[in-house]
Design a protein around this nucleic acid. Sequence first.
DNA 1: TTGACATAAATAACAGTGTAAAGTAGATTG
DNA 2: CAATCTACTTTACACTGTTATTTATGTCAA
Lengths: 219, 219
Amino acid sequence: MSETTATRQTRIRQKSAERRERQRQETRKAILEAATRMFEREGYEGFSLRQVAETIGYTPTTIYLYFKDKDDLLFAVCSQGFAEFTEALQHAYDTHPDPTERLNALAWAYLEFGLSHPLHYQVMFMQRSEWVTKATDSKGEVEGSNSYTILMNAIIEAMKAGVVRMGDPIETTNLLWSGVHGIVSLALSMRGVIPKWEESEARRLMGNYLEMIGRGLSP
Amino acid sequence: MSETTATRQTRIRQKSAERRERQRQETRKAILEAATRMFEREGYEGFSLRQVAETIGYTPTTIYLYFKDKDDLLFAVCSQGFAEFTEALQHAYDTHPDPTERLNALAWAYLEFGLSHPLHYQVMFMQRSEWVTKATDSKGEVEGSNSYTILMNAIIEAMKAGVVRMGDPIETTNLLWSGVHGIVSLALSMRGVIPKWEESEARRLMGNYLEMIGRGLSP
DNA sequence: TTGACATAAATAACAGTGTAAAGTAGATTG
DNA sequence: CAATCTACTTTACACTGTTATTTATGTCAA
């Protein structure tokens, strides 16, 4: 009997540990969600640890039990952004078999992500761009699944298909990347500053850009 | 006699007022210079009003007698950056009569400014891009003397000369602008983050970009 | 069941930040 | 000489992120 009680006790103990762990992940998730809402409302500069804590009825210091510091929390918020971004590109990649259309679709998806997640985009690629590597590293992603490599693969295939002139794939990827990044970052920077720079202008610019590199990159 | 003393007094009073005004501008300049040094060392996020005050032996509140608030001081720092930037572009414009070379020179000057003034560039065009208009407005510049218009004029002339295909000058300017901005901002964001992205990579990328748009924009 | 222990959360405190209101020596002026 | 004006400081407030310390609360073995 001592044996059965022993096993029962260990079972209970394990269940208990599981439940505690589950609860821990739950409050962690609650903090993260509150932080995300907070970030999407206030942006990078207005993001405040204490306010996040307040909205979910915790003391500021409690957050430190679940995240190393403010940066760590904000990075967790951004990680979701990176995941969504990669997913958007991957979807564009998967749904367009034709090499040329695929490249265009990737550029458009890139733009749409930036326009629909301006705050995320800005912190991911402008304010805290050092996180781009940290994000892909921490998720242990294989080479082929991060956003940069998706773009590069599309370019390599376009080269193979003979619709893009041959050359160092990395250089060409950087060329395309900096182009779309320039359009997106400029659109986000200038929206509300220069009247002309609404979303429509960003889209027209992207159209012109794709048209131009269609000529400039053709073999 | 009362008249001569009266005029003498008024003269003295005026000189005194002038001297006070001169001293006032002097301390204002001292604050601005300290702020500039501070900014170039600490960057946008690390920029602190109280530290600026400390380095020049003033109380924090004194700065408010010369600048409206922290933002106003930082904007004054940036204004110098904008002036230098415009000057660099203007110089590139003036020293290259050939339309094609002129466009290339403008792009290279743009890149060099960004690489040699990374902190200024980032705050001017990435963190606080709303100041681009404020800067040109406050200086009361004519249409033709700000950086954007320099670029556009170069493009208009390149179109007239038949080396760039006809089209809406504004659209083409935006295309070129977003391209070089993409290269510069990405270079600054990724320096130190991705090993490959040193300055040399930015320059190689600019070379490729100019080569490509040479084909893509040719008539 | 009780006493030791671990875990979660809160308190208190520190060193910063920008900013506004009130006070204070010293020059300027009638 | 007294009043006023000017440049500046002192004081204070409401924030910020972060650390060390306490206080409950639940878990666990004897």
